[in-house]
Structures are given as structure tokens and as C-alpha cells.
Design a protein around this nucleic acid. Structure first.
Length: 463
RNA sequence: GGCGGCGUGGCCGAGUGGUUAGGCAGGGGCCUGCAAAGCCCCGUACUCCGGUUCGAAUCCGGACGCCGCCUCCA
């Protein structure tokens, strides 16, 4: 079974499943009030790789990732643009799924909307009030963090140190600056749901704790998200579950930042590139490869240069796919190891990839091994072992597919004119008329084609 | 102030007490009519200063520089 770094324990440890053969994962999803940026892309990709790999290995994966569709930011944006909250959330949720699809992220098993779970959220808040862990003020219901014994454990800080660092002026009505909102009473004109403690809307931390428990059940396997969610979001989810006496996530995973220069990419810093912009100009697979070649817990430098670097390195992999005419893999659906042939050297390769990934999702190691195998397959082919080479190449393709990276074969549609030009060049070449052959190659280049002369004939591919 | 992290060759980016990361870029060669693709060879890095050690980029201490969380944030 895979070993992952568990933020709560502070060590890499085996992911011990609640139910044999089945794994339940909750990934905190987006608040849909703006375009997704590269940081969200890494977030989706990192956990997509885990999702895909576990499924590849034959586990039944219940992958839940929510959409937060009620939030102050949504309300603010709607007010600013003079449109409804629904108009905002619909637009940006569509953008979200479009971007993820383009990145080749497998859809979650469930993608709950917060607004569909308000009733159970109200129940949870009522139960917390009943236990005297939550209290009402004139603007909402707050959670009393002092009532949770180990509050701060996930973030590795004591209640005292968290208090001393609190930057925000204490809300007069709150008992502690660290107490967080479970329910916010609606101001005039704001969307609201009726509740015993007043019409309003749920707080973000309550949304995730409720949806994860509703869809995955108590003691589910893994709760993950970006490092910035560790505190306060995940800490607060944990606090609520703990106060209710409900077993929560058995394991916590957090991934690192996307960096721009030496700064974290974030909306508040205004230095983000939207995924929409990236995908308009770049092969989305390049971003996945970039994410794969760094460790998920490390910061990752993303600049036009590093993206371009990854795009070029992808060409080498696509060349392999062309050379061995690999079948396309890893689209929307999840690859299964059982659908592939891993006999002989292919099996050894699979074993190496498995040990890398099972060691805290060591994708850089896995990628390095797959590049090594790529060279090896080419060498085998060059040295007269086409069968062995093809078998290894297929394994490379399948294992990249297991991580969601789909290699491209030369599936470019060649139009008649270009095919004709290619045939003419072939004729000129055989006749020894190389200047004519080169001229025709230039003409084809003008149409965006590159020629590769192989032992079995010349082929065109898009430049 | 509290807590956590980082500093690796031209660039990105792994890793580890002594044995090749990997990719991209660059140089040389093979193959090719010439290319493309592929193959072979090459750089010999680890912020600085001490210490531990037979041996440290890897452990310990210190210095310097940088980043993040503690507020909405993937």
C-alpha cells in the first residue's frame, strides 16, 4: 500500500484504509468566484495523479471534491457586477471544469455543491450549540476553539501561539479571536437559508466537514488540499468533527505552492496566471509533466521558461509514441494495470514506478525512471530487438497513462495536398534530385509540417 | 513575535553519509543525400564558516540570503 506524508503525524506513513480495497479521499475544491489559476491546476493535478494511481493498482477510489458555491466573495462579486450569485457560480464553475478537463484531470466520483448540503450543516451547527461548543452572537454562530483539547495539532501550533499571532482585531462579540464562523446571519438582500439560529448561510469550514462526512462516512481515509488550507480551514474542520465526537480523516495530505520567482502565486498578490490563459497557448500536458517532475510537497517554479522546457521534453516522449505507434491512453477514464501487459522487463519497470509512487508519491523519481526506459526502448530498437523495444515502449506509455500523461502518436490528419507533396518529394529523393526534394520539404514546412524519414518511409508531423 | 520551509551544475528539479537522478539548453561524434527522429560521449554542482567522521552537498552548530502560514487563499 502507498505511503504518504501525514501532516497530522508529521511523517511518511502507510495509508491504512478503513475498508480493504476501497479508499475514500476528500479534496477541498474551489470557491467559484473567479478564474482558476496555475495553483489550482497543480492542486488538481497532484491529487489526480494519486487518484489515478490508486485506481490503476485496482483500488476502488471514492474521490470527493466539492464546489463551494456560497461565500462572501461570490456575494461580493455578484453585487459588484450587478448579477445574481448563481450567474457568478455557474460561470466560474463551468470555467473550472473546462480547465480540469483540458488538463486531463479525471472527474471526481462526487462533486458536491455546498448549497445542496445546507440542511445537514444546520444540524451540525445545532448539535454544536447544544454541546455548548458553539455560541450565537449578533452576526452569526461561532465555534469556541477553547473547547477542543488538541486544537492546533494539525498546524503544529499551540492555542497560545496561535492567539499571540492573531493579526485580526478581536471581534467584540467573539470569545476568542480564533473562534470561527459556523453560520453567518444574512444581511438584507443576501442569499439565505432558514435556521433555528436565524436566516443566513454556512461558514466555509462547516461545509467541508459536513460534505466529507456525508459522502465518505466517518473515519474516511484521506483529506487533502493545499498547504494554505492546513490552517485554519482543515484545523477547523477537524475541530468540529472532534467536538461532535465523530471520527474524521485518518490521514492528511498537503501539497506545496506554485511559485512565481520567489513568491507564492496567489490571487491576493495579483501575480497569478489563469489556467484559461495557460491552456490557450500551451499543451496542457506540459503543465502536468512540470508538476510530475517535482515533488508534490515542494514549491514549484512556473514561468514561461519552465513551461517551455516541459513542452520540449514532452516532444521526446511523443517521439517514442510515434516510433512505436503507441495506442492513446489516459483520457477522461482511469487506466487499469490489469488492462496492460506487464510481463518481462515491462513488469520490472512497473515495479520501479510503483515503488517510487508508493514512497510518498515520488513522481520525479517515477518520471526519471520512465525517461530512462524511453532511452532503453530506443536503444533496443536501434540494436535489433524491435519486439522487446515495443513491449517496453508500451509499458512506458501505460505508466505515463497511469499518471494521467497521455503520449501523442502521429495522429495528425494529413490533407491531400500535403500527402501529394510528400509523395512528390519521395519521388524526387529516389530519383536523386535532392534539391527538388529539399524544396518540397520547405514547402511542407511552410504548411507547418515536419518530415521524418524512417526506414519504413517518410512521415509528416505537425511542427 | 510564534510555527514551518528553502538555498544543488546555464535553467528547472530529485536525492543521499562513500556508487548515474531526470529533463531542457550547450559542445563533440554516429546514423542520414542533407535534415528530422534516435544513439554514443562530455560539463563534474550542491550559499558561507566551523564541527562530528576514514569520508558530508547529505549529520550537528553558527552566519547570510530567501519564502510561506499565523487573515480569504490550491
Amino acid at each position: 500500500m502507498i505511503h504518504l506524508y501525514d501532516t497530522l503525524e508529521g511523517e511518511v506513513r502507510e495509508l491504512r484504509l478503513r475498508d480493504e480495497g476501497r479508499v475514500g479521499i476528500y479534496l477541498c475544491g474551489p470557491t467559484v468566484y473567479d478564474l482558476p489559476h496555475l495553483g489550482h491546476g497543480r492542486h488538481a493535478l497532484v491529487w489526480d495523479v494519486l487518484h489515478r494511481w490508486l485506481a490503476f493498482e485496482g483500488l476502488e477510489v471514492n474521490f470527493v471534491s466539492n464546489v463551494t458555491d456560497i461565500d462572501d466573495k461570490i456575494i461580493n462579486r455578484a453585487a459588484r457586477e450587478g448579477i445574481s450569485e448563481e450567474a457568478v457560480t455557474t460561470r466560474f464553475e463551468n470555467e473550472w471544469w473546462r480547465a480540469l478537463e483540458a488538463l486531463g484531470v479525471a472527474p471526481p466520483t462526487h462533486a458536491p455543491h455546498a448549497t445542496a448540503y445546507v440542511a445537514p450543516m444546520i444540524e451540525v451547527i445545532a448539535a454544536l450549540i447544544e454541546r455548548d461548543v458553539a455560541y450565537s452572537t449578533d452576526d452569526g454562530v461561532y465555534f469556541d476553539v477553547s473547547r477542543v483539547e488538541d486544537y492546533g495539532r494539525l498546524s503544529g501550533q499551540s492555542l497560545e501561539s496561535l492567539k499571540s499571532g492573531a493579526r485580526v482585531e478581536a471581534n467584540e462579540a467573539k470569545r476568542s479571536p480564533l473562534d470561527f464562523a459556523l453560520w453567518k446571519l444574512a444581511k438584507p438582500g443576501e442569499p439565505s437559508w432558514d435556521a433555528p439560529f436565524g436566516a443566513g448561510r454556512p461558514g466555509w469550514h462547516t461545509e467541508c466537514v459536513v460534505m466529507s462526512l456525508e459522502l465518505l462516512g466517518e473515519g474516511f481515509d484521506l483529506h487533502c488540499g493545499g498547504l494554505d488550507l492546513k490552517f485554519p480551514h482543515h484545523e477547523n474542520e477537524r475541530a468540529q468533527a472532534s467536538a461532535l465526537g465523530r471520527p474524521f480523516a485518518r490521514h492528511w495530505g498537503h501539497h506545496g505552492w506554485v511559485m512565481v520567482g520567489e513568491e507564492k502565486m496567489s490571487k491576493s498578490l495579483g501575480n497569478f496566471t489563469s489556467l484559461t490563459d495557460l491552456l490557450a497557448t500551451t499543451d496542457p500536458r506540459a503543465y502536468r509533466l512540470l508538476v510530475l517532475r517535482s515533488h508534490y510537497r515542494s514549491p514549484l517554479e512556473v514561468t514561461p521558461e519552465t513551461i517551455a522546457d516541459a513542452e520540449r521534453s514532452l516532444e521526446r516522449l511523443d517521439a517514442l509514441a510515434r516510433r512505436f505507434a503507441l495506442a492513446p491512453l489516459a483520457g477522461e477514464h482511469l487506466e487499469l494495470a490489469s488492462d496492460h501487459d506487464f510481463s518481462g522487463p515491462a513488469g520490472q519497470l512497473r515495479g520501479r514506478i510503483a515503488s517510487a509512487l508508493e514512497d510518498d508519491l515520488d513522481t520525479p523519481q517515477a518520471v526519471a525512471k520512465l525517461f530512462d526506459a524511453t532511452s532503453q526502448a530506443n536503444v533496443m530498437a536501434d540494436r535489433g530487438d524491435p519486439r522487446g523495444a515495443a513491449q517496453l515502449a508500451r509499458a512506458v506509455g501505460a505508466l505515463f497513462g497511469a499518471m494521467g500523461l497521455r503520449l501523442h502518436t502521429s495522429d495528425d490528419e494529413v490533407d491531400e495536398t500535403s500527402a501529394d507533396l510528400l509523395a512528390k518529394r519521395e519521388a524526387a529523393r529516389s530519383a536523386g534530385d535532392y534539391s527538388e526534394a529539399d524544396r518540397l520539404r520547405d514547402v511542407l514546412a511552410g504548411h507547418g509540417w515536419l518530415i521524418e524519414d524512417t526506414p519504413t518511409g517518410s512521415v509528416l508531423r505537425r511542427a
